[in-house]
């Protein structure tokens, strides 16, 4: 499991995360919900080492991740899809996907075309556009591409930051379903950050509610979904 304990992160003097602790069970979807500025993205960025924490620890299968570099964290099986459909728009769809598998090309050369094929099976629209520049894709396609780039590294943990941001509900549904299927089929551990709490809680097993950088609730997703008082207090609906 992915275990976060007593994690604190600051941006200068601004406290973004304060003593955050929770665990994400292996093979399950854990969602982190909360209002804008609750520290959700910072949490993911701290796990993937893009941001250095002030204190605390993050372990995956007992291995400490704090102090490692972002590239070595990816290499150890924790892949991050940052907020805002992070693809490289000047590269083609195929090149973007290939990026995620580059570091495996010596050891697992034969697996790479297979992994790429799996991404095209997962998101057939990307196959149609494989030679197009990523910059020419729609928002939804870019998100699919960003997820593919992460998945092609064959991660054990997928950190997904606001995949629904700026996308039409139907596309969001499709992307979330794909992730859900993948998780159930392959045992992928997913940490899903969402502002859209309903969508996230509907597929997640477990939910963590962040408020102003602190954990306000840490419960099974169904319980969080049902707790109208909590939702009204922290999410406004």
């Amino acid at each position: 499991m992915l275990k976060v304990s007593q994690l604190s992160t600051h941006y200068g003097s601004v406290k973004a995360l304060h003593n955050v602790s929770f665990t994400a069970e292996q093979g399950k979807i854990t969602t982190v919900i909360g209002a804008n500025g609750a520290g959700k993205s910072t949490l993911l960025r701290t796990i993937s080492a893009l941001v250095k924490p002030e204190s605390g620890s993050i372990t995956w299968k007992g291995r400490e991740l704090v102090g490692a570099s972002p590239e070595s964290i990816v290499r150890s099986g924790v892949a991050h899809v940052p907020e805002g459909h992070a693809v490289i728009s000047q590269l083609t769809v195929e090149e973007n996907i290939k990026l995620g598998s580059l570091f495996r090309r010596r050891k697992f050369a034969s697996d790479i075309s297979q992994a790429t094929k799996e991404m095209f099976d997962l998101f057939p629209r990307l196959q149609e556009r494989r030679t197009q520049l990523a910059g020419s894709l729609s928002g939804g396609e870019r998100q699919m591409l960003a997820i593919s780039r992460a998945l092609v590294s064959r991660p054990e943990v997928l950190l997904l930051d606001e995949p629904s941001l700026g996308l039409a509900p139907l596309v969001v549904e499709q992307i979330i379903q794909s992730i859900n299927d993948l998780c159930r089929k392959t045992g992928l551990t997913v940490l899903l950050v969402e502002q859209n709490a309903n969508t996230a809680l509907s597929v997640a097993d477990h939910g963590v509610l962040l408020a102003l950088g602190e954990v306000a609730a840490d419960r099974p997703a169904a319980e969080l979904m049902a707790d109208t008082a909590l939702r009204a207090a922290y999410l406004g609906y």
């Binding site: 972002p70 940052p82 490289i88 995620g100 580059l102 570091f103």
Partner: peptide, 23 residues
């Protein structure tokens, strides 16, 4: 692959690092 890694590192350091490339 190394050429692609170099282009990616130059274009978008964050995405490159998150792809496991030693920028």
């Amino acid at each position: 692959g190394m050429g692609l890694a170099m282009r990616a590192s130059a274009l978008n350091e964050e995405v490159a690092r998150l792809s496991g490339i030693k920028v």
